[in-house]
Amino acid sequence: MSKSKAKAGNQQLRIIAGQWRSRRFGFSEQPGLRPTPDRVRETLFNWLSGYTEGARCLDLFTGSGALTLEALSRGAARALACDQSHEVVTTLRGHLASLDCTRGEVRQQDALALLGQNASETFDLVFLDPPFHQNLLPAACQALEANGWLSKRAWIYIESEAPPSQLELPTSWQLHREKRAGQVYYSLWQRQA
Rank of each mutant, 00 (worst) to 15 (best):
R39C: 03
S73R: 00
T171Q: 15
S172D: 13
S64K: 05
I15H: 00
G104S: 08
E29W: 03
N147W: 05
P31S: 12
A162Q: 13
G9N: 06
L60N: 10
A140M: 11
A113E: 11
H133D: 15
Q109G: 04
S165V: 12
H95W: 06
V106A: 03
T122H: 09
T62V: 11
A139M: 09
V184P: 11
L128K: 02
A140K: 10
S151E: 13
R153P: 00
P31V: 10
F27V: 05
I156E: 07
S73Q: 00
N118A: 14
D59G: 09
G32M: 11
K152Y: 04
Q19T: 09
L136V: 12
P170G: 06
Q84E: 12
N135Y: 11
P164R: 09
E42H: 04
C82K: 05
L72G: 03
L167Y: 08
S98E: 14
S160D: 12
W173L: 15
A79H: 00
Q30E: 15
L125F: 03
N147D: 08
N135Q: 15
W149R: 12
P35L: 08
S160L: 11
N46H: 07
Q19H: 04
S73K: 00
L80T: 08
Q142D: 12
L72D: 01
F25D: 02
S151L: 02
D100T: 04
L150T: 14
W149T: 02
D110F: 06
P163T: 06
A71V: 10
Q166W: 07
D38F: 04
